[in-house]
Structure formats: structure tokens, C-alpha cells
Design a protein around this nucleic acid. Structure first.
Length: 274
DNA sequence: CACCCCACCTGCGTGC
DNA sequence: TGCACGCAGGTGGGGT
């Protein structure tokens, strides 16, 4: 579910409420997430620590705790982070519950359990972050760099955009929207794009991610922010999930195809093969 | 290495 | 009504 904009919205909602708030206790759900520290590790490293700062890297959320302890969360497809008053009725599929001072609790809920919740003691670098690519809004990301990264790559530009080891945070929804806006066929080999193409892709990437953040993210089924509210950017999607509907630019029916096991939506007229 | 496919899960909508 | 099937915002391991 959550891609960069959704994680960013959650971060912005949580940061002012969590900063400088102490974790009192931790509860862990029965079933394990795909990647999850043991209950013992959570119990050892979290209770009693103050939350100093929140950070986003790609689709990961980092909680920097007192004493250089890091709590790393990834929401997978169906993860939610809900901040509630204590006590609140128990939620189904709650996998981690942080009891906080001031009558609040933070619940990590994840139906499909593709998410991650890992704690890292002082001095231990969070391993998953070593695989995370550059931030789309970083000055380190330029059309020239993208072109260089894509050089001699035969894989489809859409799969390239979704490769979090290159550009972090772009998932299936936004990859579709970006390529429609940049008028590129999603199956174009990444290495075939010119620097001008990459200039357009980067501009549209930043514009769309920024607009999605401003609209509170995209809710197609599960996504809720930390206050339990849906996003609004689904109202602005131009291609994702719109198979058979007319293209908003040219009226041609939009097409769906599969790429790497994921659905790709595009306009066969506006997004011609190169 | 680059690339592809599949596994990992649960729930929901569709069509028979 | 019930059941089978396909599909869903992601990642990572293993095979080619």
C-alpha cells in the first residue's frame, strides 16, 4: 500500500505528537510479520525510552530513540500506524503496540503481514536501509544521474522506476501516474530513454509525489493516516485502476497489462512505444 | 551482475 | 448461498 507520499503523510502526522514522548510499554501480536524483532528484543530496547525524532527513508519509517536505539518500520501492502487514546478497543491484526506517556498508544496494524518492525541497538546500522536508493527530492537525483543509472538496462522503465535500490519510494500507483504524465510507454527499456525523457520523468515524479502528499496520500483500499483518515489523491489518479475508462487527455480507452506480476495502466495513444 | 518469477499473507469482489 | 479464482500501495530470495 503505502508508497512515499503515504509514509510521508504518516510521518508528518506523527512527528509533532510523538517527539519527546516516552515509550512506557510494548505489546507484540501473536503472528509474526515478515520481518520482525523478537518480543524480547522489543522489551529490552523500547520501554522507558524517549522518542527523539522521526525520519523517512524511501518507504521506511525510522524512530530515533534515546540512547541511539532505532525502531525501523515498513508498512508493506496493508500496514497502518494509528495513534489512539488509551484505552482504546483492541484492533484486529495489531502487531506492535507502543504504550506512550500522556495517554496515547501507537498501534502497528497489518492485515497481510508483509510489513516490518525491527529494533536496532546502539551502533547497529539498520541493514535494510543499505539497500534503499536515492530520495526523489534529493539534489543528488538529476536527469543525468538517472540516465547514467539506466544506461544499458534492458528492463522496462516502469520496473526501473519501482526499483527502490535506485530511486526510493515509488510503487505501483505512482509509477503508473508518472509515466502517463511523462507520456512514456511503461514497457520502454529504461536504457532507451534520452536525458530529455529523464528530465520529464523527474519533473513529473516530483510534481506528482508532492501533490499526493498535499492531498494526504492515495487510498484505494486500506490506507489510512495516523489519525485514521483516508487520503484524497485517489480522486486525481489519471490511469491507475482505470482500465477501459477514457483517457482524460485523448479519450482513448485506457489499457491494463501485467509487468513483473503487477498491473500497469496506460493510454495506448498518449504513451506510444519508442 | 541484471533480470524474472515467485513466495510471503489475508480479504474482497466476481462469476459460475 | 457457496465456492473457486483473481487481484491488491512491497520486498527479497533463488534461479537463469
Amino acid at each position: 500500500m503505502p508508497e512515499l507520499p503515504e509514509v510521508e503523510v504518516i510521518l508528518r502526522g506523527l512527528a509533532p505528537r510523538l517527539q519527546n514522548r516516552r515509550i512506557l510499554a510494548v505489546a507484540v501480536g501473536e503472528k509474526r510479520l515478515r520481518q520482525e524483532s523478537s518480543p524480547g528484543e522489543f522489551g529490552r530496547w523500547l520501554p522507558g525510552r524517549n522518542i527523539l525524532e522521526l525520519e523517512r527513508r524511501g518507504k521506511y519509517l525510522l524512530f530515533h530513540l534515546e540512547g541511539k536505539v532505532i525502531l525501523l518500520l515498513h508498512l508493506g501492502m496493508t500496514g497502518r500506524l494509528l495513534l489512539q487514546p488509551t484505552p482504546s478497543p483492541a484492533l484486529p491484526h495489531a502487531h506492535l503496540l507502543l504504550q506512550l506517556e500522556g495517554g496515547l498508544q501507537l498501534v502497528f496494524q497489518d492485515v497481510r503481514r508483509f510489513g516490518q518492525a525491527l529494533v536496532f541497538p546502539p551502533g547497529v546500522a539498520p541493514a535494510p536501509l543499505s539497500q534503499v536508493g536515492r530520495e526523489p527530492f534529493s539534489r543528488q537525483v538529476t536527469p543525468q544521474w538517472l540516465s547514467q543509472e539506466a544506461r544499458a538496462r534492458s528492463r522496462a522503465v516502469k520496473n526501473f522506476l519501482m526499483d527502490g535500490r535506485v530511486l526510493a519510494g515509488i510503487g505501483n500507483i505512482y509509477a503508473n501516474e508518472i509515466l502517463f504524465a511523462a507520456r512514456l510507454h511503461p514497457a520502454t527499456p529504461a536504457g532507451d530513454l534520452s536525458v530529455e525523457d529523464w528530465t520529464r520523468v523527474l519533473k513529473e515524479t516530483r510534481r506528482i509525489l508532492k501533490a499526493a502528499i498535499a492531498k494526504g496520500g492515495t487510498t484505494v483500499s486500506d490506507y489510512l493516516n495516523s489519525q485514521g483518515e483516508t487520503g484524497l489523491f485517489q480522486l486525481e489518479l489519471l490511469v491507475y485502476g482505470r482500465e477501459g475508462e477514457p483517457c482524460k487527455t485523448c479519450g482513448q480507452p485506457l489499457v491494463r497489462m501485467a509487468q513483473g506480476g503487477r498491473s500497469t495502466f496506460f493510454c495506448p495513444r498518449c504513451q506510444k512505444e519508442k
